[in-house]
Amino acid sequence: MAAGPYNYSYIFKYIIIGDMGVGKSCLLHQFTEKKFMADCPHTIGVEFGTRIIEVASQKIKLQIWDTAGQERFRAVTRSYYRGAAGALMVYDITRRSTYNHLSSWLTDARNLTNPNTVIFLIGNKCDLDAQRDVTYEEAKQFAEENGLMFLECSAKTGENVEDAFLDTAKKIYQNIQDGSLDLNAAESGVQHKPATPRNPINTDQPPNKEGCAC
């Protein structure tokens, strides 16, 4: 509270997508609670979490929408792409099928978000290297071909989880700085809170202006 009038100066909206069971909810939980939730219940529809981070000494509040990966929820979750500044697209490195579905997730993401939405590819469960079914190089190449940022993470050990969320925010912030993201437009997925309050606190009023207090 003592930090100033605002807790944060931006809100970034994220969406996490990918097949069921790739660890989307666990990633969110790891990021917001710094804990691994081994018996995470199935996501019903859409859930959300928040956390305040700092990028370039700006406080940014991330509002993260976690979607259900099942096909039957696809129609529902599609509605949550609008207005996302960042999309984390997750697959499970131990299940090739989840990797193979990426192009369909990517199509959704491209069609339903705005052109400036930062899409970050996450290969989750990298702690299970022995059961690996998708190589790092292959996914890296896919990411490069599609202009995605990419990291392999583990929601279990927490490896790289922080980086994935923060790098996405940094990229969004960079887009704001170089002007490619228009903050005034509705549903850019970013909301800005002015650094100085519009109604400044009257701390140093010149005395002559003051009404007579005698």
């Binding site: 529902v76 949550y80 609008r82 978000t113 705005n114 052109p115 400036n116 437009a185 549903e187 850019s188």
Partner: peptide
């Protein structure tokens, strides 16, 4: 809708009842 029209205005999907109503509800 969003900047430059993406995401598109919800009403643009009014011919698709499920998407239209679903987007509003979301």
């Amino acid at each position: 809708g969003g900047p430059g029209g993406t995401p598109r205005p919800i009403e643009l999907h009014s011919h698709d009842p499920l998407r239209y109503v679903g987007d509003m509800l979301a």
